[in-house]
Amino acid sequence: MGGPTGGSPGADPGDVTPESDATQDGQRAAKKQRSFWKELPILIGIALLLALVIKTFLVQAFSIPSDSMQDTLQRGDRVLVDKLTPWFGSKPERGEVVVFHDPGGWLDETTTADPGPVAGGIQKVLSFIGLMPSAEEKDLIKRVIAVGGDTVECKGNNDPVTVNGKALKEPYIFPGNTPCGDKPFGPIKVPKGRIWVMGDHRQNSLDSRYHQELDKFQGTVSEDEVVGRAIVIAWPINRWSTLPVPDTFDQKGIGAAVAPPALGLAGAVPLVLWRRSRIARKTVLKG
C-alpha cells in the first residue's frame, strides 16, 4: 500500500497552514484596495454627471449680488431656482420671483477682482456642476408683475401699481419705498411672450421701468430669457424660507375676464347637442 508522497508525513493535502491563511488575507485586502481606487474615478464621474443633470434640468443655485430685491432677498443669499417646470411648458406667472438672462444693457459693465488661477479654477468647476454661481453669467432676479396681454401702470407718488385696472397690495416692497414714486410708468400693454418685472426694493432696482426706451418692447423681458423660478432661500440657514406667490396676484379681475374661445366652444357644443336631442324627443312624442 502506498502512502502520500512528498510534504510532511501525515499531512492532509486539504489542510491549510496558518502561514497560508495570512497570505490569502493579505492578497484579498490588497485586491479590495486596488478595486476601491479603480472604482473611485467612476463614482466621482457619476456624481459629477448627476450634479450636471440636476443643474441643467432641475434645480440650480444662484447668489444674490445686490439689494434690489430687499427685504425679500438679501445680498449674499443663496436661492434655489426651479428649472424643471419650464421644460413642461410652464410660463412665468404674476408674483413669481424669477431669474433671467440680461436682455441686453441691464447690467452695468463692472470689473471684478481676479480670484487667481487656483480659486478661479475651483469656482469654474463648482459653477459648472451648479454648486456655485458663475462669475461669467449675466443673470438678474426680479418679481414678475405682469405677463403677456396684461396692462400695467403706476402713476407715481403713492399710487399703487395696477394690473388690468386692479391695484396691487404689495407688502413685500422695501419699507419706506413707494410703489413707483421714483419712476412712474404706463399704461403699458405687455406683448405676448414677455413679462414686466420689478424689484421689491423699488428705489434701488433698475428694472423694467428704467428700460422702457431701450427698444420697442418697452422694458419687458422675453419669456425665452427666463432661467427659472426662485422657489426657496437655501442659505444662510437662519434665512431659510420658501418664496410663494403673494395673495394680491390672486384677486379677481387681474386675469382674463372671459373664458378663452376654445373653452367656450367646448362648453357650448354639449349644451347645443342636449337641446337638439330634447327637441327631437318632444317631436317624436307629439307625433
Rank of each mutant, 00 (worst) to 15 (best):
E153L: 10
E153N: 12
C154T: 04
C154L: 07
C154S: 10
C154K: 03
C154Q: 02
G156Q: 02
G156N: 08
N158S: 15
N158P: 00
N158Y: 12
P160I: 14
P160C: 08
V161N: 08
V161L: 06
V161C: 09
V161P: 06
T162P: 12
T162Y: 04
V163N: 00
V163Q: 00
V163K: 01
V163I: 13
V163G: 07
N164R: 07
G165E: 02
G165R: 05
G165D: 01
G165T: 11
K166H: 06
A167W: 01
A167K: 00
L168P: 02
L168C: 00
L168N: 01
K169M: 11
E170W: 01
E170M: 06
P171F: 10
P171C: 05
Y172M: 09
Y172E: 12
I173L: 15
I173P: 04
I173F: 13
F174Y: 15
F174M: 12
P175S: 13
P175N: 07
G176H: 06
G176I: 05
T178E: 08
C180W: 09
C180I: 14
C180R: 08
G181I: 06
G181T: 10
D182F: 12
K183E: 05
K183W: 07
P184C: 06
P184I: 10
F185T: 00
I188S: 04
I188T: 01
K189P: 05
K189V: 14
K189C: 08
K189Q: 14
K189G: 14
V190P: 04
V190I: 04
K192F: 06
K192V: 10
G193T: 07
G193L: 03
M198K: 01
G199S: 08
G199Q: 05
D200N: 05
H201R: 06
R202S: 11
R202P: 03
N204I: 11
S205H: 05
S205G: 04
L206I: 14
L206D: 09
L206Q: 11
D207N: 06
D207R: 04
S208L: 02
S208V: 05
S208A: 15
S208K: 03
R209A: 02
R209D: 09
H211Q: 07
Q212S: 13
Q212C: 11
E213M: 12
E213R: 13
L214N: 15
K216V: 14
K216N: 03
F217V: 07
Q218W: 08
G219D: 00
